[in-house]
C-alpha cells in the first residue's frame, strides 16, 4: 500500500490527474462562495454571451452558466463517487465470493457476470430510468451501482483465483479460520490495486453515464448537474443559435474530470504492472545510450 502511494507520488500522470480532480473538488466544495448567482434563478437576459456580469454567459432561461457549472460539479462528483463506490463494492464482493468459493457458487456468479456483461448497459439503463420516471441523481447512482458491477467482478474473480493458491491462504484454511474472514482479511488486502483501478474506472463510467442519461432526457430537468446543463442546452439548440458557451462549458468540465480520473487510473495501472510504463528508467536508459556508456 505504501509502495503504491510512493509510486503515485513519483508518477507524472498521477500528479496531473490528482491536480485536476483536486481542482474540481475544491471548486465544488466552494460553490456557495464562488458562484455569483443562484444557479436556478433567472439572473439575466436569455443567451447572453460571456461578459463581466456573466463570465460564462447565460442559458436560454437566463440562468448564470458559471454558477450552474460550479454547483453542478457537486452533483457530478457525488454521483460519480457514490455510484463508483457502489459498483466497486458489488463487483468486489461478487468477484471474491465466486473466485474463492469455487464450485456451484462460482458457476452462478460467473453466469450472472457474463449475463450482465452481454446485455447492453445503456439500453437497459434507459428502460429502467424510463419506468422510474424522471430520475433524480440519487436514483441514477443506485441504478448504475446495480447494473454495472460485472466488469469489476470478472477482473476481481480472476485475481482472486491466483491469490487463493498462495501459502498464507492455505495456512489460514488449515488453522480453521472462518471463510468470511479469509475472504475479508487474507484475500481482500491483496486485491487493493485491482480494486483501486476498478474504482476509478467505475467513477469515470458513472460520471459519463449520468451525463449521458440526463442528456437523453431521463434526468430530472430541475436538478443542477452537468448532464442536465447539456440536456437543456441541446433542447434550446444552443449550438445552432450560436450560444456555444451554453453547451461547451459543461463539455469542457466533463472532459476535464474524465481526463483527470483516467490519468490517475493509468498511473495506478502502470504501478501495478511496471512493464506498461512510458517514462522513468527508460529515459535514463536512453540518456546512457546517447552518452556512449553502452549499447544493446
Amino acid at each position: 500500500m505504501t509502495a503504491l502511494l510512493r509510486g503515485l507520488l513519483h508518477n507524472r500522470k498521477a500528479m496531473v490527474g490528482f491536480a485536476l480532480i483536486a481542482l474540481i473538488v475544491i471548486v465544488a466544495l466552494a460553490a456557495p462562495w464562488l458562484a455569483p448567482y443562484d444557479p436556478g434563478a433567472r439572473s439575466g437576459r436569455p443567451h447572453q454571451p460571456p461578459s463581466l456580469d456573466h463570465l460564462l454567459g447565460t442559458t436560454r432561461l437566463g440562468q448564470d452558466v458559471l454558477s450552474r457549472l460550479l454547483w453542478g460539479a457537486r452533483t457530478s462528483l457525488a454521483v460519480g463517487f457514490g455510484a463508483g463506490l457502489l459498483i466497486t463494492a458489488v463487483g468486489t464482493v461478487m468477484g471474491i465470493l465466486g473466485g474463492y468459493s469455487g464450485g456451484r457458487t462460482d458457476d452462478v456468479v460467473s453466469f450472472l457476470t457474463n449475463m450482465v456483461l452481454v446485455v447492453p448497459n445503456l439500453p437497459l439503463l434507459l428502460v429502467l430510468a424510463a419506468f422510474l420516471g424522471q430520475a433524480s441523481p440519487i436514483v441514477i447512482a443506485l441504478i448504475l451501482g446495480f447494473t454495472s458491477w460485472a466488469w469489476g467482478a470478472r477482473v476481481t474473480r480472476a485475481e482472486t483465483l491466483s491469490v487463493r493458491q498462495k501459502d498464507f491462504v492455505k495456512s489460514a484454511e488449515m488453522m480453521g479460520e472462518p471463510r468470511w474472514r479469509i475472504m475479508a482479511v487474507e484475500i481482500f488486502p491483496n486485491l487493493l490495486s485491482i480494486v483501486g483501478i476498478n474504482f476509478i474506472g467505475s467513477v469515470v463510467f458513472a460520471v459519463i453515464t449520468e451525463a449521458t442519461l440526463e442528456f437523453l432526457g431521463l434526468g430530472d430537468p430541475r436538478a443542477v448537474s452537468w448532464g442536465i446543463m447539456l440536456f437543456n442546452a441541446q433542447k434550446a439548440s444552443a449550438l445552432a443559435v450560436g450560444a456555444w458557451w451554453d453547451i461547451l462549458t459543461p463539455c469542457f468540465a466533463l472532459a476535464l474530470l474524465g481526463i483527470g480520473l483516467s490519468l490517475l487510473n493509468f498511473a495506478v495501472d502502470e504501478i501495478a504492472n511496471p512493464r506498461l510504463r512510458t517514462g522513468g528508467r527508460l529515459g535514463r536508459w536512453s540518456a546512457l545510450i546517447k552518452a556512449g556508456e553502452g549499447r544493446l
Binding site: A211, T212, L230, L239, C251, A255, G258, L261
Partner: peptide
C-alpha cells in the same frame, strides 16, 4: 477514451 461521447460529438 476519457472524454464522454456526448462531449466529443458536441465539440
Amino acid at each position: 477514451t476519457s472524454v464522454p461521447a456526448v462531449v466529443t460529438s458536441l465539440v
